[in-house]
Write a protein that binds this DNA or RNA. Sequence first.
DNA 1: GGGCCTACCTTACGGCGTAAGGCTTACAGC
DNA 2: GCTGTAAGCCTTACGCCGTAAGGTAGGCCC
Lengths: 243, 243
Amino acid sequence: MSTPQTSTSQTARSTLTRARVLASAVALADREGVGALTMRSLARELGIEAMSLYHHVASKEDLLDGVTDLVVQEIQAAVAGIEPAPEDTPPSDWKHALRRRILTARSVLLRHPWAPAVLETRTGFSPHVVRYHDALVALLRRGGLSYDLVHHAMHALGSRALGFSQELFDPSGPGGDPAPTADDEALLARMADEAPHIVAMLAEVAHEDPESTLGWCDDQTEFEFGLDLILDGLERLAQREAR
Amino acid sequence: MSTPQTSTSQTARSTLTRARVLASAVALADREGVGALTMRSLARELGIEAMSLYHHVASKEDLLDGVTDLVVQEIQAAVAGIEPAPEDTPPSDWKHALRRRILTARSVLLRHPWAPAVLETRTGFSPHVVRYHDALVALLRRGGLSYDLVHHAMHALGSRALGFSQELFDPSGPGGDPAPTADDEALLARMADEAPHIVAMLAEVAHEDPESTLGWCDDQTEFEFGLDLILDGLERLAQREAR
DNA sequence: GGGCCTACCTTACGGCGTAAGGCTTACAGC
DNA sequence: GCTGTAAGCCTTACGCCGTAAGGTAGGCCC
């Protein structure tokens, strides 16, 4: 053992680490949804027994914390790849910089459709989640907004800051799978009695915009609409604050 | 047994119905959180066995569907109590009417702190949820907005239409219980390294607004801020549309 | 070499949703 | 009144889940 290199027994080829456990968990959730992410299934994926996982994560909650943090880390990496740090962006550009960051975050989440649902159940302060939001705060501050307005802005954005917004009644479950179920028309017909205005609205919107996502609404378009609504409102408040 | 009155054996006093099951489930969730709402615990509450519940609900999913629908029904009742139907409100008042409806919905949800988390997991079309949204659509339509703008508006509001918005990292878990945990300062100190801007913001905001909820942010104020931001933006778009 | 630590495994517990089937009671038609 | 049928409730049991408790085998330091 004169050489200080890391040991080399038969387990060295695939020593388990927390990072490997978390990466495997993300892969499994991507492939089969969070519902299929159990301690036993994750262990099977890694070729070990369920209880061995507890040497690398404290509990299932801790596992989910780590998994969401990993996804947000991926978001941060994507954001860092496309634009300079907040300190180096022109202050006047805060709205477009913020918008770009958020849409980039969204593009990452689209690769992990289960992540929003898990994120919403996390109450702790995952390191990368905090860092991500800290960068947003820095961006807005450099844009000249008061801390008070920045604070309101963060609350107004809510989960939109990370690139998603929960849609009530979305026929595709939280597991992703946006397949348009083809019986949408039957559903609308059944709803016609108790929701005539919604049905009329959907009929007209679908007619005016036939190339949107089949039958149901185009998430990306709607997300951007809501995001811009908020950003424009914030910009107006910022301008009023500045003068 | 000559009298045709409803029978009188020992079980007649408290015949179970779906409505009674759902009401009990809401009460139990209010008291002990959704986590404590299991088929067995609910049966215990009703003095029956778990499997007997399946004569009134198809599954646990169906139970949760019914429970959320009951809460939204409560919202509708509260809304109906404070203001006229959409057909009878002056069209020009749409913004204030919408605001009042939403804040009323929120006041009901504050009595059922577990409800937002459950609502977000429902992907179906609960009757009362649909009816509630239909009334909002009617209100906006009568205000002169195009179906297209109404459609965008509903998506922009998202869960805010029902009176809640998920806050990422909220130290109080989804079970309610907004007790400020008193180690907030320790938490902030730990965060100072990786989130200096957030810490600075919170320090200043807390200083400027000491009478807000202890240590953490005032949900109601922030909710109204975000809501008004969206409503004002919609109003501006509606005015642009009208001319 | 003895003791300790780390990583992994084995076994087992209690709780969950619910499938399958049995028992009792109420009522309709003869 | 007798009987078939159905509803309402119960009993038992299965296969999941997270995880507590404890065992074992190899590598490290004294």
